[in-house]
């Protein structure tokens, strides 16, 4: 199944449920071309089978394309930056930036500051043992990069890990 076939089915399912008309092949192709440009991706991408023979970086870019086409109100991107070389990282980050709107939210899960060189977060939350233990603005991420996590652990009262009795 090609990426285009899969995305067309998904878009039309979502449109149907939102009470909109389905897109025909031509309209969908137009939408897809526009989004491909937005995420700086090649046309050949869309005729390839979903996740078949994709490199790690291509899979991530494919996810960003899906994000662009499906336009969810909330996107959770879990370690979208792992295994990416610097060029792919920039493409992925630019994609996320361009898809930001006042009406949508994105939760980025990452272990590194690296991705945040390209994406400026509105909020930073630190999760520890399944709980948010510290929240702040973009400067929190910079502090973490400079000082590591240990100072936060020292700061917080002893918290039992989730699930521990």
């Amino acid at each position: 199944m090609s990426t285009a076939q899969f995305l067309k089915a998904a878009v039309n399912e979502i449109r149907t449920r939102q009470g909109q008309d389905e897109l025909d092949a031509m309209d969908f192709l137009e939408l897809l071309r526009e989004k491909l440009k937005l995420v700086e991706m090649d046309q050949s991408f869309i005729s390839r089978a979903v996740n078949e023979g994709f490199s790690g970086g291509e899979k991530k870019r494919n996810e960003i394309l899906q994000l662009a086409v499906l336009a969810p109100r909330l996107a959770i991107l879990d370690e979208t930056d792992s295994g990416l070389d610097i060029d792919a990282l920039r493409v992925v980050a630019n994609g996320i930036n361009r898809l930001r709107t006042p009406d949508t939210a994105t939760i980025l899960v990452t272990h590194y500051q690296r991705l945040l060189n390209y994406i400026t977060p509105d909020q930073v939350h630190v999760l520890y043992n399944g709980r948010i233990v510290k929240s702040g603005g973009k400067e929190l991420a910079l502090a973490l990069e400079a000082h590591g996590y240990d100072w936060i652990k020292d700061e917080i009262p002893a918290v039992a890990p989730l699930g521990a009795a």
């Binding site: 899969f6 089915a9 998904a10 399912e13 979502i14 449920r17 899906q66 499906l70 969810p72």
Partner: peptide, 8 residues
């Protein structure tokens, strides 16, 4: 995978 992308 497909359901998480909005398909029924």
């Amino acid at each position: 995978y497909l359901r998480s992308r909005g398909l029924g």
